[in-house]
Computed example of a mutant assay.
Amino acid sequence: NGDVAGHARALSELARVQEYAGRPEESLRTCREAVELARRAEDTRLQAALYLRLADTLERLGDPAAAQLHRGAAQRMLGEEPQESDAAEPGPEQEAFEPEHDANACEIRSTSAKD
């Protein structure tokens, strides 16, 4: 179980590197493989974090509907309610906090320094 989860984490790192290298389609495939491994390892937090990475990548590939589905799935896995109504009218504390950038979701998402 630990080995499978470790392999999933390694694949998530590879997906991050692929995305940094400008290969989002490859990153998407690698991340989906990592999700499957996290599911087999029964590591819910890792699986949720990987869904957030998938959502970010899908967003970059121009598929916001699929991205939102993955974000919703991640929030449900983490026991959070999707915050659609809050997103429409963010309060001061919500402007700084976005569920898809939760620090507890593992360091597997990418942010581009080029943006």
Rank of each mutant, 00 (worst) to 15 (best):
P82I: 08
Q83I: 09
R32F: 06
E59C: 04
Q75S: 07
D63C: 03
E26W: 07
L69P: 02
L78H: 04
G2I: 07
A105K: 03
A66M: 08
L28T: 04
A96Q: 11
E19Q: 14
L52F: 04
R16N: 05
S112Q: 05
Y51L: 08
H70K: 12
A105V: 00
E42C: 12
P82T: 09
E89V: 12
L52T: 00
L11I: 04
G62S: 03
I108Y: 01
A49P: 01
L58Y: 06
E84L: 14
A21C: 14
A34E: 00
R40Y: 03
G2W: 05
Q18H: 07
R29H: 08
L46M: 04
R9C: 06
R109F: 01
A96S: 12
A48L: 00
Q75H: 10
A41K: 05
A41S: 11
P92K: 08
A41L: 10
L50P: 02
S110A: 11
G79M: 06
P24L: 05
A103F: 09
E93H: 08
A5Q: 12
L58C: 05
D3I: 15
Q18T: 05
T57K: 00
E42K: 15
L54I: 06
A55N: 03
E33Q: 15
R16A: 13
C31N: 10
E89K: 14
L50Q: 01
Y51H: 12
D86E: 15
E26I: 07
D102C: 02
Y20P: 01
Q47F: 01
L58P: 00
E42Q: 15
A88Y: 14
P82V: 09
R76T: 10
S112L: 11
E95A: 13
G6S: 13
T57N: 08
G72I: 07
V17P: 00
Q83D: 15
L14S: 11
A87C: 05
N1P: 09
P82H: 06
R23M: 09
E59I: 02
Q75C: 09
S27C: 09
E95V: 13
P24T: 04
L50A: 02
